[in-house]
């Protein structure tokens, strides 16, 4: 008769549990954080005070309202605006001539603004914001 050999008890190596936990957490963190963001870089517009009007006559002026885009006085829709701004910027070679002064109505939505801004960038223009500063003047 054969005697059965008793199986030795094997404990899992507890010392490795910290490493296992660490690797698992790193794995889940990486999975959670890899969510690539997409966007559009923009050369930052230089803001100009309203009273500083030097050389503005040379530059194109764009006014954005919630419904229309006004280029040098002509109200346009986006596809037409993109073509017109491209044509207007094409003959201009110097960077300072390619500055486009953008003035937005206070209630212009970001979605509209970013589309116009992209059209100007794509046409080779440099967006410059014109902000109207609020001032309180006390009259005696």
């Amino acid at each position: 008769m054969k005697l059965r050999r008793g199986k030795p008890l094997v404990d899992p190596p507890a010392l490795a549990s910290s490493d296992i936990a660490f690797i698992l957490i790193i794995f889940f963190l990486v999975c959670a954080s890899v969510q690539p963001e997409t966007g559009r870089a923009q050369t930052l517009p230089k803001t100009e005070e309203k009273e500083d009007k030097r050389d503005q006559s040379k530059n194109l002026e764009v006014s954005i309202t919630p419904t229309t885009i006004v280029l040098n006085g002509s109200p346009l829709q986006l596809p037409e605006f993109a073509a017109r701004i491209k044509a207007a910027l094409e003959p201009k070679q110097r960077p300072e001539d390619r500055v486009v002064v953008v003035k937005s109505a206070p209630d212009t939505e970001y979605q509209q603004w970013i589309r116009v801004s992209k059209a100007i960038d794509d046409a080779g223009g440099v967006v410059t914001l014109e902000l109207t500063k609020e001032r309180t003047i006390t009259v005696e």
Partner: peptide
């Protein structure tokens, strides 16, 4: 996306 220019333009200016 619906933020108005009076809200986001000063923020762009500050980043600049």
């Amino acid at each position: 996306r619906t933020a108005a220019a009076q809200t986001f333009e000063p923020v762009i200016e500050a980043i600049g």
